[in-house]
C-alpha cells in the first residue's frame, strides 16, 4: 500500500512510523524543509496525562497513558525520561495546588524534604508539592529529528516538491494549523515559549508552577538548557512573542528559582496549536483521504494513540479494497 502523508510535524511523523511498521510504503510531503513551521517544534514534550486532566477531558488521560511506552519503542534508548512531574505553587497560591489536586489523580502530596530530595535546586523553596511519579518527558526536537532519521533509514522519502496524489492509495493529511480557515471549527491557540540557558540551576524533571492567571512549566533539556512555556492565547498569529508574555514567562521562571534571572535567554518561539471546539483531536475519513487534526497542546501525548488509530483505519481500508477485488 502506498501512502502519502502531508505534514512532517509530530502527527505526520508518528503516523508514518505506525504505517511503516505495518509494512506500508510511505512518502511524506512537507511544505518547507525542517520543523520550524510545526507546532510540535515549540512543544514542551511532557508526557503528562495526569496533570493535563486538570483541564482536559478524561479521554486525554486514557489515551495518553500509553504515550511514554510508544515513544520509548520508537526512539533511541534514553530519549524518554520517566521520572515524573513536580507541581508547585508559591505560598500565597497554595489554594491553586489544592484546586489542581482536586481535579487530578496519580499524584502524592510531598513536603519540603522530599521536594529537596527530588530536586535539590528547589530545596527550601516550597513547603508542599504534588508529585506525579508515572509521568514522563522527552525533548521534542530530538524526538522529531530521531523519528525522521529512522523513517529515512527505512526508505521513507521526504519531499518538498509537487506530488501527484493520484499515485497513492491513500493520503493522510497531518498539516495541522495550516488547515485553519479550511476545516470547519478548527482554530489556532497561540503558544509562546522560550529557552533559558544556565548552569546555576539543575532540574531533572518538568516542574509546573501554578498561578491563578499565569501557569508555567519548565522542562530541563540537559546541558543547562531549559524550555519555559507556554502561553495559551486564542489566536492563530504565529508572530514573535509579545513583551507581556515574555515578561510573564520570565517572572514565573524567576519565581521558581531566582537564579533564572542570570540565565541567558537563548531563544523565544511561537507555535500555533490547531484545536477544535472541545480541544480534542479528530480523525476523519473522506474517500481516500484521512485527516488528522486538532491535537491542541497534546501533540506528543496523543499522537501515538492517534497514529495507531490512523494506521488501523488505513490498513482496514486496504482490506476492504482487497475484498472488493
Amino acid at each position: 500500500m502506498h501512502v502519502l502523508i502531508k505534514g512532517a510535524g509530530v502527527a505526520g511523523l508518528t503516523a508514518a512510523h505506525a504505517l511503516v511498521g505495518r509494512g506500508a510504503a510511505v512518502m511524506v510531503a512537507e511544505r518547507t524543509h525542517g520543523f520550524a513551521n510545526a507546532a510540535s517544534w515549540y512543544a514542551g514534550g511532557m508526557l503528562a496525562p495526569w496533570c493535563e486532566r486538570e483541564s482536559a477531558e478524561e479521554t486525554v488521560l486514557i489515551r495518553g497513558t500509553a504515550a511514554a511506552g510508544w515513544w520509548e519503542a520508537a526512539l533511541p534508548a534514553g530519549s524518554v525520561h520517566r521520572n515524573g512531574t513536580l507541581v508547585v505553587a508559591p505560598l500565597r497560591d497554595a489554594a491553586e495546588l489544592r484546586r489542581f489536586a482536586s481535579r487530578t489523580s496519580g499524584y502524592r502530596w510531598i513536603g519540603a524534604e522530599e521536594i529537596g530530595a527530588l530536586e535539590p535546586a528547589l530545596a527550601g523553596r516550597f513547603r508542599e508539592a504534588l508529585f506525579f511519579p508515572e509521568e514522563a518527558h522527552l525533548d521534542p526536537r530530538r524526538a522529531l529529528s530521531a523519528l525522521r532519521q529512522g523513517l529515512e533509514a527505512q526508505g521513507v522519502v521526504f519531499s518538498g516538491g509537487a506530488i501527484e496524489e493520484d499515485r497513492f492509495d491513500l493520503t493522510i493529511d497531518c498539516t495541522g494549523a495550516a488547515r485553519i480557515g479550511e476545516i470547519k471549527a478548527l482554530r489556532g491557540v497561540r503558544g509562546e515559549m522560550l529557552y533559558l540557558q544556565t548552569d546555576e540551576v539543575s532540574l531533572s524533571r518538568p516542574v509546573r508552577l501554578l498561578h491563578p492567571r499565569i501557569p508555567l512549566y519548565i522542562v530541563p533539556r540537559g546541558g543547562g538548557l531549559f524550555m519555559c512555556g507556554a502561553t495559551m492565547i486564542e489566536s492563530d498569529d504565529a508572530g514573535a512573542i509579545t513583551a507581556r508574555s515574555l515578561m510573564e514567562l520570565l517572572n514565573a521562571a524567576y519565581t521558581l528559582h531566582p537564579a533564572f534571572a542570570e540565565a541567558r535567554l537563548v531563544e523565544t518561539g511561537t507555535g500555533v496549536r490547531p484545536a477544535f471546539g472541545d480541544n480534542l483531536p479528530r480523525v476523519t475519513r473522506q474517500n481516500n483521504t484521512i485527516t488528522v487534526n486538532g491535537l491542541y497542546r497534546h501533540g506528543f501525548l496523543l499522537s501515538p494513540a492517534i497514529a495507531e488509530e490512523v494506521a488501523a483505519l488505513a490498513l482496514g481500508a486496504e482490506l476492504k479494497r482487497g475484498n472488493a477485488r
Binding site: I180, R187, I233, D236, D237, G239
Partner: peptide, 9 residues
C-alpha cells in the same frame, strides 16, 4: 493578536 483567522475566538 493578528493571524489569518483574526478574531476566530
Amino acid at each position: 493578536a493578528g493571524g489569518r483567522q483574526r478574531g476566530a475566538f
